[in-house]
Amino acid sequence: MSTPVLELRDVSLGYRTATGWLTACEGISFSLAEGERLMLVGASGCGKSTLLGAVAGFHAPHAGQLLLDGRPVTQPGPDRMMVFQEFEQLLPWKSVADNIAYPRRLAGTPRAEGRREAETLIAQVGLTGFADAFPHTLSGGMKMRVAIARALAARPRVLLMDEPFAALDALTRRRMQDELLRLWRDFGFTLLFVTHAIEEAVALGSRILVLSPHPGRVQAVLDVPDTLEERAALEARIHRLLLPEEVALHA
């Protein structure tokens, strides 16, 4: 078997607070193969965003190993481009095209070529005609498209997404989910996606990792089936895992 793109071995994360040490998640192990779409699902406070931040290299785990293509992750880098939840993640002083071309420019791509690539990506995320617009003139959904295009421009080994659609209205969210899947079919990227929304995880993932809260531990790893009925069953199962009290109440 080939080396997984991303592998976590017994990773524990925490941070110092005023009252002492707070463990965000512990003993997390999973691996991610090329082209997979792994969803991290859990209630708020299960450390899923902290975990994603560690994969991005923003903070180091205090135990365990974090390997990208078999090599330990030591610092942030564009091989793990992140799409954040906040709309204000574009550089306000750069146009849409310049924002998207920026990772390539930093990697030494000539201006004209970077621009050409950006134009292609702009078309692929449905923003034709907005290449020279500045971020502050765009709506939230459009900003998110630019952020996704910029992340794809860097050709990351893993695309990291931290609840990217959580702040969008329901209609835009659905549309963005469909488009993300379409982009995945076009680019075949490897995706690690954090969400608290179970429907979103089932709609987007090829595999779902359910985290228990306080501190986060791997509760279940589930493959997402193809048929709608099976998916509905999976959704119900994750609901039971995450909200046992509520399910008991309804029973």
């Binding site: 942030p76 564009p78 002083w93 930093l106």
Partner: peptide, 27 residues
């Protein structure tokens, strides 16, 4: 400067001087 913007710079692989000049100063 919003923390996200700083994170974006780090995510792009910018550090130290580069981060200061390319992200923090314009922001």
């Amino acid at each position: 400067i919003p923390p996200t913007l700083r994170r974006v710079g780090e995510n792009l692989g910018l550090r130290g001087w580069q981060l200061t000049l390319r992200i923090l100063a314009p922001a």
